[in-house]
Design a protein around this nucleic acid. Structure first.
Length: 439
RNA sequence: GCGGAGUUGGUGAAGUGGUUAACACACUGGUUUGUGGCACCAGCAUGCGUGGGUUCGAUUCCCACACUCCGCCCCA
């Protein structure tokens, strides 16, 4: 048997319906926030990720799917979304659009060559959004609130938002140097991974899980202390806007993020649900004011957020949030004779073209089994076609909820279904998004 | 890349070096030749992750590999 590659997943059945539902909610929310959908190629020149994401990040140095195409070009399956979006922004000269800033969102698969475990796959789906062309702290607050609000609308309650600021380039460099200066004499007190980090990416020592409780760590320089006045004020502004929007957050100086391109605001959103597993960060992001330039575009400030779709689904499951999945059909047609079957074929086509969800038996089952099938599909109505009824131009239709059976003339069937299938709508403000209110 | 656990049908699972791999759910058919969802009866893995090896004989023992899960690193 041929099996799926390691770290990949088939999404089908109820799970697929849930994915479609969550995607739809994301689309709806993004539309309200006026973000445009973008889809970029699954593979890009390897160089894009080396320059965009950074040479010292693990996802570029040891986790990419690289290949050489038949023309000898070095290609990489995208490990994250931002670099491709920025490339597209530059290549398509979106900075020239009159509509500024540029607000984009995506929902697409990413690829990282990792050892899979719960909440971590080699092919993962991320949705995310970017605002390019403004450095206004309000845009930082918008991205964070937007992320939180999507989770909120989906029903997640047990999430925690951690934010921090790395400051501008000068602040970040000062901080980096301070870290090196501080940790060098203490190198032997740190774990082995941190030895390497000291040279490569000293910021990451700060969020090391092995050393986090050691004395050296408690005395270590904090990002906040190395922000210059401008960066500090900027961070204050971001927090003010978040407070106005009613977004709960915590300032966590250990949030430094693994991707090289961040500066100023960085943030992570974690699921605080019991039994979620080690991979509990469901989303994260930050500001990247230098990436566009680094990829040879005009100097453009930008901020973005990305969320793991699979981890989001896991969080919804762990919080026992029932996603309302339409798992029923309007009408099931039953038949026995060949003439009845023919009429079923006609009705099936006709009613579907009128917008009803209609099903029938395709396996020439006996009546009892057809009824079973109708039940399995949660059909709201059933019609047992009957040659005699058809001669009189009518059908016997049964409402499966009330068990009432009525004779309806064929001419009035569509009208009858229209009348009886009207949905009750609750008026809570989340009912479009699968509220759990009592109807 | 490193460490650990696991892999029996559509599903949940029991089990053994030896002629028929329990049990339950689901499914299919019948009792009931056109109104079901109940009940009863019957059927339903020539195979126990894949490939080798040991053996008269392996699902069971050994080895390798694959995949899943847990943890590290890292990240979503």
């Amino acid at each position: 048997m041929i099996t799926k590659p390691k770290g990949t997943k088939d999404i089908y059945g109820i799970e697929a319906k849930k994915w479609q539902y969550v995607s739809k909610v994301i689309d709806e929310v993004m539309e309200k926030y006026n973000y445009d959908f973008i889809r970029t190629p699954v593979f890009e020149s390897s160089e894009l990720f080396h320059r965009g994401v950074g040479q010292t990040t693990d996802i570029v140095t040891k986790e990419t799917y690289d290949f050489t195409d038949r023309g000898g070009r070095n290609m990489t399956l995208r490990p994250e979304g931002t670099a491709g979006v920025v490339r597209s922004y530059i290549e398509n000269k979106m900075y020239g659009n009159d509509n500024k800033p540029t607000k984009l969102y995506y929902n697409m698969p990413m690829y990282r060559y990792e050892r899979p475990q719960k909440g971590r796959l080699r092919e993962l789906t991320q949705f995310g959004m970017e605002i390019l062309g403004t450095d206004d702290p309000m845009s930082d607050a918008e991205i964070i609130s937007l992320a939180v609000n999507i989770y909120k609308i989906l029903g997640l309650k047990q999430i925690k938002v951690n934010i921090n600021s790395l400051g501008d380039e000068i602040s970040r460099n000062n901080y980096r140097n301070a870290l090196i200066k501080y940790f060098r004499p203490h190198i032997n007190e740190l774990c082995e991974d941190c030895h390497e980090r000291l040279e490569k990416n000293p910021l990451r020592i700060i969020d090391c899980k092995v050393d986090k409780d050691k004395e050296v760590m408690k005395m270590a320089p904090k990002t906040i202390d190395y922000l210059n006045e401008e960066s500090k004020q900027r961070f204050e502004k971001v927090k003010e806007y978040l407070e106005v929007m009613g977004i709960d957050y915590a300032v966590d100086p250990t949030v430094v993020r693994g991707l090289d391109y961040y500066n100023h605001t960085v943030f992570e959103i974690e699921a605080k649900v019991e039994g979620f597993g080690a991979q509990n960060v469901i989303g994260g992001g930050g500001r990247y004011n230098y990436m566009v330039e680094q990829l040879e575009g005009p100097k453009t400030a930008a901020i973005g957020f990305a969320s793991g779709f699979d981890r989001l689904m896991l969080a919804l499951e762990k919080e026992n949030i029932d996603i309302l999945v339409n798992n029923s059909v309007d009408l099931f047609l039953l038949y026995v004779s060949e003439d009845e079957k023919k009429y079923a074929a006609y009705l099936l086509n006709d009613l579907r073209m009128h917008g009803f969800i209609v099903e029938t038996d395709y396996l020439n089952r006996n009546l009892k089994s057809q009824f079973k099938q109708a039940d399995r599909l949660n059909s709201k109505f059933t019609i047992v076609l009957n040659d005699n009824d058809l001669k009189n131009n009518e059908v016997k239709i049964k409402n499966n909820a009330t068990k009432e059976v009525e004779m309806v003339s064929l001419d009035a069937l569509i009208y009858y279904l229209d009348e009886n299938l009207t949905e009750e709508v609750c008026d809570c403000n989340l009912h479009d998004h699968g509220c759990n209110c009592e109807k």
